[in-house]
Structure formats: C-alpha cells, structure tokens
Write a protein that binds this DNA or RNA. Sequence first.
DNA 1: CATCATATGTTGTATGATGAATTATGAGTT
DNA 2: AACTCATAATTCATCATACAACATATGATG
Lengths: 239, 239
Amino acid sequence: MQKPEGLALGMRPKLSERVADQLRERIQKGELALGEQLPTESALVEQFGVSRTVIREAISSLRVDGLVKAHQGRGVFVCEDISQQPFRLCSKDLSEKDHMVQAMELRMCMEVTNAELAAARRTDPDIQSMEAALNRQHAAHLSGALGQTEDFAFHLAIANATQNSYMVDFLRFLGPYIIPANAMHQMDPKELPAYQNSLRAEHWAIAAAIKDGDATAAGEEMRSHLRRGLQVNSGAGIL
Amino acid sequence: MQKPEGLALGMRPKLSERVADQLRERIQKGELALGEQLPTESALVEQFGVSRTVIREAISSLRVDGLVKAHQGRGVFVCEDISQQPFRLCSKDLSEKDHMVQAMELRMCMEVTNAELAAARRTDPDIQSMEAALNRQHAAHLSGALGQTEDFAFHLAIANATQNSYMVDFLRFLGPYIIPANAMHQMDPKELPAYQNSLRAEHWAIAAAIKDGDATAAGEEMRSHLRRGLQVNSGAGIL
DNA sequence: CATCATATGTTGTATGATGAATTATGAGTT
DNA sequence: AACTCATAATTCATCATACAACATATGATG
C-alpha cells in the first residue's frame, strides 16, 4: 500500500508552512529590508489571521533556514547575509531523468578535480583506506552483492584524501541522489560480473594514479570512470 | 555598537534547539529506525520535561531539515531517505582562512568542469549574456567600482551555459562565501587597475574558449584564473 | 464475514497566561 | 542640560489547556 504523498491536488498544506512560504517570498523579493524588520508576532497574527502558534512555527522554519534571527525581547530580524541558506537539490520542475543526469554531472564536476587534489595531497592512511574500500568491494562482488556501499566508500576515501572536509561533506550530500540510480539493478545477470570487473579495474586505475601522485592521470581516470557510469545509466552524457 | 552574537559563553540556547539537537543525534545514530518511529509529542513532553510548544518547534526544525515527516493523526516518522537533508557550509571547527580556502576549492572543482561543459553546450544567448556581463564589469571598473557583482554575474552566465540548473543553484549558493573574501578591498589603490585589467583579460580568455567550443582550453583558462585568485587571496593553493 | 458507527490516539490550531530579555520612559540628582 | 537609575512597555520564549482534523482500532450489527 502506497500513500500518494506529494500533495494530491487537495492535500491542504499546513498553515504554518503556507505562512512560512509567504514570508520567505517577501524576504527574497526584498520587501523586507536586510538588516532589520519583520513585524512582531502579534502583528503577523493579525495580518495572516492565524494563531501565534502558527506564526511561531513559520518563523521557526525561517530560522533553521538561516533567513532570520530571533532575539528575545527585541524582535525577529532578516539576516544580513542570507548566505547561510542551505543548498537543496529538489527542483520539482525537472524530470526524473534530468534530475539524475544533472546531479550526476554535479558530482562529476567535483570528483574529477577531487581526484587531482587527492593525488597531490594524499597521505599513507588515505591510500590505505582507499585500498581497503576496494578490497571490501571486491569481496562484496565475489559474494554476489552489488557492492554499492563499498563503491561509495572508495569515492569518499578519495574525498578524504583531498584534506578538504567540505569535499567529503558535499560528496556525502550528493551520494544518496546517485547511488539508487545505478543501473546494476536492471542489468542482465549474465553481464553483471563483467561490469563489476571493469568497475573495479577503473577504481584501481584511479587509486594507482593517486598513489603515484599523478594528478592529471587521476583526474582523467576519474573522468572516464564517471563518464562510463553516466552512459550506462542514462545513455546521455556529453561531458 | 556590535552584539556578541555567537553564544557568548553563557548564552543559553533556546530549549527547542537543544531538544532538536538531541533528536537529530538520536536519528543519525540510528537509535530511531528509518521508516517509522519517533515517540508521540506527549511522550516527548514527558521525556524532556518541557512543554508541547517546545517539542513541536523542535520537530518543526527536523521537518525543514528533511529528517522527519509529520502526518496529522498518525505521527512523526523518520524519512526513508535522509537524502533530502540540505547541504550547509558552516563547519565551526575550521579557522576563518581554512573555511575560505576550502570553500574556494569547492568552487574551483565545479567551475573548471563547468567551463568545459559550457564550451560544449553554450547557445548564442549564453554567449551574449556572458559578454554582456563582461562589458558591465569593464564599465564598473572604469567608473572606479570593484565590479564584484558583475564578476559573479559572468561566472553565473557560464554556469547557465552548461544547461544544468543545479550548477547555477550551487554556484549561487557558494557565491556569498567567496565574494566578500576578495582581496581587492585591501589592495594598494595603485595596483588595483592593473589587477582589474588582468582579471578582465582572464575572463575574456575564458569567454573566447567557450565561444570557440574548446572545452579543454576553457577548463584550463578557468583553472588558472581561479588559481590566481586563490593565491592573491590566501597565498596558498596547490590546486 | 462484511459494513458501519464509535472510541481512541495523534498531530494541527487556537487562546490565555507567565517568564525573560531588551528597549523606552521619566523622575531625580548633579 | 546631562547623567543615573528605577520603572514601565515591548517582544520573544515557554507553559498550560482546549478543541479541531485526521487516522486507526474496536466492536456492534446485518
């Protein structure tokens, strides 16, 4: 049994969310100045004709989004730098396939340069964790598993080797958007082992280049690795 | 007059936030299973010894973070795919400089490949908006302005030319973390015009490569452009 | 067994009151 | 006039209670 989820044409969104959306709009349109502003809770209660509960929950949303900052006894203020707004990947006006391809390209953009950076900065422990992930992946393949977790762990190890924590964070953020799209699920079981072999070969090539400290080679290996994955998954991919 | 802001050693964080943090921890530690769970609001009221208002605001935080989903009449459930979690760039255990450098590297990772993609896919309108941004930047420089807005507009135009909306979103997300760090503010006014000239020259070189459809050249021009910017701003940058 | 009314539990919203922090006000002093 | 300090007014934070809306379990009824 499945629920419809995505508001089924009559699914009234919560009041607090509607209010929050309206306030977001006002802020991003610039109707509310940057440094200060925002009417008091009681004023908003009148404007929207809802209870304080709703207003407070709406403002709470804006707070965790980093759009406003509330000060007890003073008021709620629009943040000076709306820079702290989080990054999301959920444009709903995109087809499922476009979403996947674009997310994959985003990943590619970073992973290629990531491999180059890793080649320049990797430490011995980095190399060890990379190779450990590859060995685990091999074991998974031998045992009949898909080994996607281990695959991702290898890429994470590379991100770690860049010594840039944001790379790790971002890849980890991107991961869930990509993993489930892997075409291995719908692949002919006959072809699976061959595909997995080539996957591992590509991984080892990347690892070797990084170990050698050859940034250019590492980048190229990563690029062709991901490009192949993109082709298998979607057929497209000019990158 | 400045406020201390960042919790000045005794600044008690709001109850709702403390509760929200504890719940986040429970979820990410896996103490709360993935599909279902989360005690009822009244149960949490007893567990934490706070009012329902606080509990509700805490859950509201988790909701906008994409960690849980609330269903009226049923309960609050941990999201199946915590993938929807937003990406933030605010690791507070990083020095100001490390933060800047790492964010800049993240930008570099994407912009280099971005330029390559743009060279392969740019349309005529893309080229026009790129060149328009450059002309506006030149005008800004001539009028004595720093022209950072126009600079960023140029990079955004390139992102647009990739035909990948996520690239635009992500660059726009990264923008605020980078713009203010530009070293032009503290530069010797004598050297400023020369620096701005070289900036524009690099921009035009990138634009030309993209216009030509030369992906490799576009990537390289972008790489050296950003690398120079990173050096000016921080001295570091092995990339 | 199938169907429907009811009861129960849960989240959503409304309302009033109190506490805590900030700012505005004004009296009083120098 | 200028400064100090207590007081009041404003505003968000929290608490407590009640009701509405929705979902599910229960049990009676046919």
